[in-house]
């Protein structure tokens, strides 16, 4: 049994746990969570449905079904992960399954910002560096302790240098990835912006 889901809160400095490898380029958000699961008014039940169709297709052999991966928290992916639909249901489903961080060759833009907005750091790593890690995650346990401040994944005595956008890093370290209150702290500036936009007056 997995532990009860707890969404991340506040500062995110370190993420530790086993890695799970999912090989493939251009894995879109329809595959991460098929559209029929979007018929919901909350995100609660999405965890079980993550990669539903791909998993059915592989009949128990999908990485998300393998026994050895059930406690994994760090997802290793390839390029353009999360392309397509803007559905936040995709990272929500991954997070509710247990994923807390993703390391990949590259991420689609909206997926990336959705991950930041819900507290999942997405690190990048060159193709040549990620391939061997994926192989190792598939063939045995790969345990990482990710240090967000130094942007490294520590594996025993080995340190893997990762990459993370500076603005994203700062948001995790300060806790401001949950952006609403930061945005609202500039409320006076927001109100004066509204008054000064040409089209607001032209459309009155």
């Amino acid at each position: 049994m997995k532990e009860e889901f707890q969404p991340p809160k506040g500062k995110i400095m370190k993420i530790s746990g086993n890695c799970i490898s999912l090989v493939g380029d251009d894995i879109d958000t329809d595959r991460i969570i098929p559209a029929r699961f979007l018929k919901c008014v909350d995100f609660e039940s999405l965890g079980d449905a993550v990669f539903e169709d791909d998993r059915k297709d592989l009949m128990g052999k999908h990485p998300f079904d393998l026994k050895s991966n059930q406690n994994a928290v760090i997802l290793l992916v390839n390029s353009n992960f999360g392309c397509g639909s803007s559905r936040e249901h995709a990272p929500q489903a991954l997070m509710r399954w247990g994923i807390k961080a993703i390391i990949g060759e590259s991420f689609a833009e909206i997926f990336y910002s959705n991950c930041i907005a819900i507290g999942i750091p997405c690190f990048t790593l060159a193709k040549k560096d990620i391939k061997p890690l994926q192989v190792r995650a598939e063939t045995g346990n790969l345990f990482f302790e990710i240090d967000i401040k130094n942007v490294i994944a520590i594996e025993g005595s080995t340190k893997h240098k990762l990459e993370l956008k500076e603005s994203s890093k700062n948001m995790f370290l300060s806790g401001e990835w949950d952006a609403t209150s930061t945005l609202l702290s500039n409320i006076k500036l927001i109100e004066s912006k509204l008054d000064n936009l040409p089209y607001i007056n032209l459309n009155k």
Binding site: R87, N114, T180, T182, L184
Partner: peptide, 21 residues
């Protein structure tokens, strides 16, 4: 014009703004 996720929809409803690069 661009697409956003649900947490960003929340931010636009609350503040009419977004944090972006």
């Amino acid at each position: 014009a661009f697409g956003i996720g649900t947490s960003q929809v929340r931010d636009v409803l609350a503040s009419q703004t977004l944090a972006m690069n």
